[in-house]
Design a protein around this nucleic acid. Structure first.
Lengths: 108, 108
DNA sequence: GCGATCGTCAACCGAATGGTTGAATATCCT
DNA sequence: AGGATATTCAACCATTCGGTTGACGATCGC
């Protein structure tokens, strides 16, 4: 379900939601567990999760009284594809970056 | 100047601003020319442009009474790099490409 | 100098956003 | 059955957002 770019970018614009996504990247989690590291109410996190779900960035599946959340990279890919039109972005190459910095420092 | 992901994603979440970016991708333009295709006031476009500029997505340079705007892909790369952590997105993905083309046509 | 053009500023407006709290619903456990 | 746990709902609040309009300061061309 490819949600609109409006919803995707808007969902990604909030730091709490981006942090939730990185959390979920490591492991699927229940709502309560997602909320644990944050200093805000459970209801607030629940809202953030439904924003993410609405944007297609996560999928939620209820098993019993627990609702499991997992990242769905498809929506992110849609946004990523849109951005591709603005340039050929190279994947982060930390080794290359380090080498470049070192070389730059040597030459200065 | 890499602006925060908050500002970048937030700027990209508005369809008018994304449309402005695709406009500027084809050619650098003055504020009035950017505003021409839109059915909203010049002041509104001026605000959108300053949001984009604030996010680092465009650069503006004043020459005389005309302010020229051009895309700056660096900020987009920052957002792109963040997303990169969520999967190895394939640039040859046809669905994404098709979506991008469709969007571009819609916005022109 | 004067009128036209370019762009921003300031004040305002309605709607959306991000948060709170307290009650409600549904499920699990014993 | 009854109590604890998981999650959402509903109402509310302050702030931000996207838009308008009208006035304003610069700058250009004649």
């Amino acid at each position: 379900m490819a949600a609109s770019l409006d919803l995707i970018f808007s969902a990604l614009s909030d730091p709490t939601r981006r942090q939730i996504l990185t959390l979920l990247l490591e492991d699927d989690m229940a709502v309560t567990d997602v909320a644990e590291p944050f200093e805000m109410s459970l209801a607030a996190i629940s809202k953030h999760l439904s924003v993410l779900s609405n944007a297609g960035l996560i999928q939620q599946e209820r098993r019993g009284r627990v609702k499991w959340c997992k990242v769905d990279p498809d929506a992110m890919q849609a946004a990523w594809a849109w951005m591709q039109g603005f340039g050929h972005f190279n994947p982060l190459d930390l080794d290359g970056l380090e080498a470049h910095i070192e070389k730059t420092l040597q030459n200065s």
